[in-house]
């Protein structure tokens, strides 16, 4: 265990160093921007991975919480003149409250019904964004979201925003890692391995699932906040069913139950459109194929799956 802790500490220190080095020395502002988007997506993947990967509960409507974070801060800052730094906790809290209320009945469901329930929830929230135009700006979107600033520091420049986003990613990683390694994380993994046995050793499975659902909603809302103040303009399309599926795809590619997998999944899914020319035409075909192929051949995700294959061949060679 101590080994495990020192290894984690080294990993996170290296991670911090890389963030700093890239942030200061990468010249090309376009790349900085792309990396900032990767950071936001990493937060999303991390959020969903806590729920799907560790607690084993699927959500096909998680973009709803992402959207609540984004619309929450947009509405509070533009309509009510909140400072964004006040809007941040308010938006996160709203997402948590919604998650709590929705989670109580939804997390009683399992399997396909849980999938359909979360899907339906995501759709309803998206319809709300689209139809409640007096507040959300409707289908045409919400414009004029202010830039972030903190005293003399302006986050309008790509570089500062990069540091802000990746700072949150680092904090998110460490927090989630600590949860995973704690009593709570063990109980979560226990639920994943066997819900009945977990209950039989005293884990309140219902409450724990709810807590993780709420935590996951909070991280998603944080990502939504960061997204809104990065692009100044949001519309319902960014939080639609496809957005939820993009989150699932990131988790599946990166590997369920893997913190660093979130980074991998988010990077691949952000870069793929950059690499593939005329990707937008093929975006859905590619996502669909990825989901199917990875789930059929490497159900534990790319990272785990490739590691498994590596270990199997190594064992074979040893024999």
């Amino acid at each position: 265990m101590n080994n495990h802790q020192t290894r984690n500490r080294i990993c996170y220190t290296v991670f911090l160093l890389i963030i700093l080095l890239v942030g200061y020395f990468l010249e090309n502002l376009y790349y900085i921007q792309v990396l900032t988007f990767i950071g936001i997506n990493t937060l999303l993947a991390l959020a969903l991975n806590m729920l799907m990967g560790y607690a084993g509960q699927i959500s096909l409507g998680h973009a709803a919480f992402y959207g609540i974070g984004a619309y929450g801060t947009a509405i509070l800052t533009v309509h009510y003149g909140f400072s964004p730094w006040l809007a941040l906790p308010a938006a996160i809290l709203s997402a948590m409250i919604v998650a709590y209320i929705v989670g109580i009945p939804t997390l009683k469901l399992s399997g396909y019904y849980l999938g359909m329930g979360t899907l339906g929830f995501g759709m309803i929230v998206n319809i709300l964004f689209r139809e409640w135009s007096s507040v959300t700006g409707g289908a045409s979107g919400f414009i004029g979201i202010p830039a972030l600033e903190l005293g003399p520091i302006s986050f309008a420049s790509g570089r500062n925003y990069f540091f802000l986003v990746w700072g949150f990613v680092l904090i998110g990683f460490i927090a989630c890692q600590r949860i995973i390694d704690s009593r709570i994380g063990r109980a979560l993994r226990a639920i994943h391995d066997g819900e009945n046995a977990a209950a039989a050793v005293g884990v309140d499975t219902r409450q724990l699932k709810l807590q993780i659902f709420v935590l996951s909603a909070a991280i998603s809302a944080l990502a939504g906040f960061l997204y809104a103040h990065l692009v100044y303009f949001i519309s319902p399309g960014s939080f639609s069913f496809i957005a939820s599926i993009r989150m699932v795809t990131m988790v599946v590619i990166g590997g369920m139950a893997s913190i660093w997998g979130a980074l991998l999944g988010a990077s691949l899914l952000t870069l793929l459109p950059e690499w593939l020319h005329a990707f937008s035409e093929f975006e859905m075909v590619v996502y669909g194929l990825i989901l199917m192929v990875v789930m059929i051949f490497l159900p534990r995700g790319l990272t785990r799956g490739l590691l498994d294959i590596y270990e199997r061949t190594r064992k074979k060679n040893e024999h």
Partner: peptide, 22 residues
């Protein structure tokens, strides 16, 4: 019905779930 992906020690730690608070 063990928690098969977890270590021996972790299984017993989960067993102490009701006797710990964190």
């Amino acid at each position: 019905e063990l928690f098969e992906s977890m270590t021996v020690l972790e299984n017993i730690l989960v067993g102490q779930h009701t006797r710990t608070r964190c």
